[in-house]
């Protein structure tokens, strides 16, 4: 089978190579999955490049946090799965390969439906769940403010919030996204402004002066402080990414005047807090909502395994240059 291998830190085109490996044979507790689609995350790219905080890897390794595929072989002790079943492997199963051999214990059944959309449920879906559940208690009618609203997590958050009766105010940088996100279920979409007062005025106008207690920050840099500037007294900014490439910037005055707190979010902590049963329930629900098209991420492009260099270059672009997620189709 063919698989990608991460062999050194560097430019993704050189840090990764395409290799041919023997087809895996499952151990008694394992299944082999023929991958249909696997999402490329910014964290993959940062790992390839060896960015600070992303260097905890051993070489060579096959990357890929998540994806979806069908079982082609089942170990002798595995019950509940058979050849042909569509499944999600668990986190970090090295999915940038034609075949994934993994312990059946955490493999989850997957619905029929668009493989590309389903291939990014595991990471971004859980991120949005954790963002909405773990930081500020929300009741129907409450508002959530988020930037990076057109990201996969942002789009998922719009739909998941709506399902809870929670309203979202979404900050975008491109006017053409307003209609798109509104169609997805966004209650308010406002254009970003470099000026925090201006942004806060837009948010107030769009939300009828709502007191917003939760702000989700994917962008970092000065955008973190601008989110804080729009929140009500006692609000919490949850930072969960830094697509600006900058550290979160927040001034004492933002925190102090309104008693705002800034915390960082990691999905793996959200996972650790939940039992396997809870996680399976959450994922079953997410998978269902994605399969029906209710939850929908933007897809920037799909690539085969041998186009990996193009795929990773695409994943590195931002804004209008990359409208959505880059997806690998390991079996073409």
């Amino acid at each position: 089978m063919r698989a990608l291998q991460h062999i050194a830190f560097g430019n993704p085109a050189e840090a990764v190579r395409l290799v041919t490996l023997p087809d895996p044979t499952p151990k008694p507790n394992e299944v082999v999955i023929r991958m249909e689609a696997a999402a490329v995350h910014l964290a993959d790219i940062k790992k390839f490049m060896g960015e600070p905080g992303f260097r905890n890897v051993t070489f060579p390794n096959t990357p890929g946090y998540e994806g979806i595929g069908r079982i082609t072989a089942v170990g002798s002790d595995v019950h509940g799965f058979k050849v042909g079943d569509r499944v999600f492997p668990w986190w970090g199963a090295s999915t940038f390969a034609e075949l994934v051999c993994t312990s059946a214990e955490k493999v989850m059944p997957a619905p029929e439906g668009d493989a590309v959309q389903l291939s990014l449920m595991l990471v971004n879906g859980m991120t949005s769940v954790v963002l909405l559940e773990d930081y500020v208690p929300l009741k129907p009618g409450d508002w959530v403010l988020q930037n990076g609203a057109n990201s996969s997590c942002g789009r998922y958050a719009i739909v998941l919030a709506k399902e809870k009766g929670v309203k979202t105010c979404n900050i975008v940088r491109r006017p053409e996204l307003i209609a798109e996100l509104t169609a997805l279920g966004a209650d308010a979409v406002v254009l970003d402004s470099e000026n925090a007062d201006e942004l806060a005025a837009r948010v107030s106008a769009a939300t009828d002066n709502a007191e917003i207690k939760l702000g989700l920050d994917l962008v970092a840099g000065p955008a973190t402080g601008r989110i804080a500037h729009c929140l009500a007294n006692g609000g919490t900014v949850v930072n969960y990414g830094f697509i600006s490439g900058k550290p979160s910037e927040i001034h004492f005055n933002e925190l102090f005047w309104k008693d705002i707190k800034l915390v960082g979010m990691s999905t793996s902590r959200g996972l650790a807090k939940r039992s396997m049963d809870e996680l399976r329930n959450i994922y079953a629900k997410l998978a269902g909502m994605i399969a029906t098209g209710e939850m929908r991420a933007a897809i920037a492009g799909t690539y085969t395994l041998d186009q990996y260099a193009d795929a990773f270059r695409h994943a590195l672009r931002t804004g209008a240059e990359r409208d959505g997620k880059v997806i690998l189709l390991p079996n073409g």
Binding site: P52, N239, Y240, I250, V263, G264, M265, S266
Partner: peptide, 8 residues
């Protein structure tokens, strides 16, 4: 300025 790798 707090880095993502520290904060999150």
């Amino acid at each position: 300025q707090v880095a993502f790798t520290d904060l999150a």
